[in-house]
Deep mutational scan, measured.
Amino acid sequence: MLDDRARMEAAKKEKVEQILAEFQLQEEDLKKVMRRMQKEMDRGLRLETHEEASVKMLPTYVRSTPEGSEVGDFLSLDLGGTNFRVMLVKVGEGEEGQWSVKTKHQMYSIPEDAMTGTAEMLFDYISECISDFLDKHQMKHKKLPLGFTFSFPVRHEDIDKGILLNWTKGFKASGAEGNNVVGLLRDAIKRRGDFEMDVVAMVNDTVATMISCYYEDHQCEVGMIVGTGCNACYMEEMQNVELVEGDEGRMCVNTEWGAFGDSGELDEFLLEYDRLVDESSANPGQQLYEKLIGGKYMGELVRLVLLRLVDENLLFHGEASEQLRTRGAFETRFVSQVESDTGDRKQIYNILSTLGLRPSTTDCDIVRRACESVSTRAAHMCSAGLAGVINRMRESRSEDVMRITVGVDGSVYKLHPSFKERFHASVRRLTPSCEITFIESEEGSGRGAALVSAVACKKACMLGQ
């Protein structure tokens, strides 16, 4: 009897593995994704193909990295998701002549009506938060230079001027797309009239992360975010950046690689679950690469896999709870928690219980395998993109072996128990001629924006502006 049951459990697990095998990517698959990513990057950089390229390769006008001589107080704003952060950054000489960066910050959550109302409502709310922060720190009387981390696709015309191309991540505030974001912020500050600010720089969160990590390690020339969304930036040779005049030196390019796949480059790798996630998203047909990796989508992918296993009578005796059938019910943090389970399955059992399920031991094991399959594919897909960037940098610099540091931020990278190990191992397999160091950014977005502002202020002083 026991043997029969054991055989049935083994057969069930084997069927589960057959279904989950769809998520496995072979090294040849990853090399294919990497080569296609490089081709799209090239198209994004070139003037004649930029418009139709899915990977936009947006110039950021960040050319210099901090040298350690900029000092002063800077205000930093960070808008990239449902939370908005205001930070005071003091850049100065530390002990023994070292450079020191001290920060104080406060988080504000953005109400739904500000995210989806008008641009005026959104930026009025942001300036209200700045006003509140300055009151708390008794700094209303000071006109501070301000660095703005704005983590949406922007076409820069200068370091302090950028046109919002399109909202992502659930934002829909009308009247912002096609307009200068810094102008919208300046107008809102003017409307309030109770404080003055000098907006000197606007950067993407990947750029802010790279600059913040450069402060720790001067070989950091790539910034990457794996959180709600997924994106990367890197220092490109100016001669390859056709959208900006000049051939000397390097400029940081914001790849906006989340949109890779929007022209069909990933079609052969998309599964039924991916198509369902895409169809029910706020932007169907867009940001397809990001939807395979980002935390906004990972939990939902797992939920759809679990429903398939229920329908195949391989999980929960073929019956799903009402909660499990509800879109968004299986949160991405559950994926991390399930994979963090120590082996007694308590954590998995508790999560499934909150979803109205009474799982068996085998159910718990199957749910864990589903989570591992989805998150491992995410790590491997992400590795193909980064390997594409790094191999490109090595080739354009004609280096036999390139040493490089990548600064990384984002909740999936930082909080998932195995993502970074799987990701690092896969990147290294795909970049055999590179020695890569990964560092995690601390308060990256805010500190990085302030350091970019410090560079901009120093330049302005040198130019006598």
Rank of each mutant, 00 (worst) to 15 (best):
L266T: 05
V302C: 13
T116N: 09
L415A: 10
A387E: 03
S453G: 15
D311H: 04
F150K: 03
S383E: 02
S127E: 04
G183K: 04
F148D: 01
K346A: 15
L47E: 06
T116P: 01
E157K: 01
S54R: 09
K172N: 13
S109E: 06
S76G: 15
I351E: 12
E51C: 12
D365G: 08
L165K: 01
E40S: 10
N180R: 02
R308K: 04
K459R: 15
E443V: 07
F419Q: 03
V33D: 03
L79T: 05
I439F: 09
Q98E: 10
S426A: 10
M381I: 11
F419S: 04
E290I: 00
I19M: 09
V33L: 11
M381S: 06
E372M: 11
Q239P: 15
V302N: 03
C457K: 11
G258W: 03
K31L: 14
A282M: 13
K296Q: 15
E421M: 13
R377A: 00
N231G: 03
K291E: 09
D400E: 10
R191V: 00
G410M: 02
K15E: 13
H141L: 01
R5N: 12
G285P: 04
G446C: 07
L451Y: 10
K161R: 13
R345F: 12
V310R: 14
S433I: 08
S64I: 15
E51M: 06
R392W: 12
D132T: 04
G264I: 03
N83R: 10
A119D: 02
G356C: 04
Q287K: 05
Q138L: 10
I293W: 03
V199T: 00
I159S: 02
V62Y: 12
R325P: 08
M107Q: 11
N350L: 13
G285K: 07
Q26L: 12
L25A: 08
C213Y: 08
V33S: 07
K291L: 04
S433R: 11
Q465N: 14
E339L: 14
D409E: 14
Q18M: 14
I225G: 01
F419L: 07
G388L: 06
E93I: 07
E52F: 10
K90V: 13
M298V: 06
I126N: 00
L185T: 01
V200E: 06
D132Q: 02
A450N: 00
E48V: 10
E279I: 13
A10W: 09
E265I: 09
A6S: 05
L79W: 01
H141N: 06
M235W: 14
V277H: 06
T168G: 02
V89A: 13
K459A: 15
L288G: 14
R368F: 09
D42T: 15
L20G: 07
E372N: 09
S340A: 13
L79E: 02
M251N: 09
S263G: 13
D344E: 06
S281W: 03
A21H: 05
T103C: 07
R43W: 09
L304N: 08
I189G: 05
A53P: 04
V401A: 11
K459Q: 15
T362E: 08
